[in-house]
Design a protein around this nucleic acid. Structure first.
Length: 96
DNA sequence: TGGTTGACCAACT
DNA sequence: AAGTTGGCCAACC
């Protein structure tokens, strides 16, 4: 305990599942992509990847780069602004 | 309280 | 490579 009570201020504070998903996605750096499964895993429910998608679909906040969240298969997946836009954004950030 | 929905995943065809 | 099937889980009626 003497060392570190360093909490990561995001995964640790519990809100609802959707809140944590938003926080996690918000931390994705530019040029990096994360899978729905990974996000769900970090959010605390590894099998809730579908819910992650549902939540992101309802999220229109620009602070949350939801376009950086893709499928596990390497496909882009859907996007509320259009899949085409999603690809363009990712390429714009240098994602391969 | 219970059933339906969905920006998915993995396995199979 | 692309389509189908069953499963899984949180959110929304």
């Amino acid at each position: 305990m003497i060392l570190t009570n360093r909490k990561k201020e995001s995964e640790n504070l519990v809100g609802s599942f959707s809140d944590r998903v938003r926080l996690i996605v918000r931390k994705i750096p530019r040029g990096k992509t994360l899978t729905y499964k990974e996000v769900a895993r970090r959010a605390g429910s590894p099998k809730a990847f579908r819910s992650v998608g549902t939540i992101l679909s309802k999220n229109y906040n620009k602070d949350i780069p939801c376009h950086r969240v893709i499928k596990s298969d390497g496909q882009l997946g859907n996007y509320n602004r259009g899949e085409k836009m999603k690809e363009q954004l990712l390429r714009s950030e240098g994602v391969v």
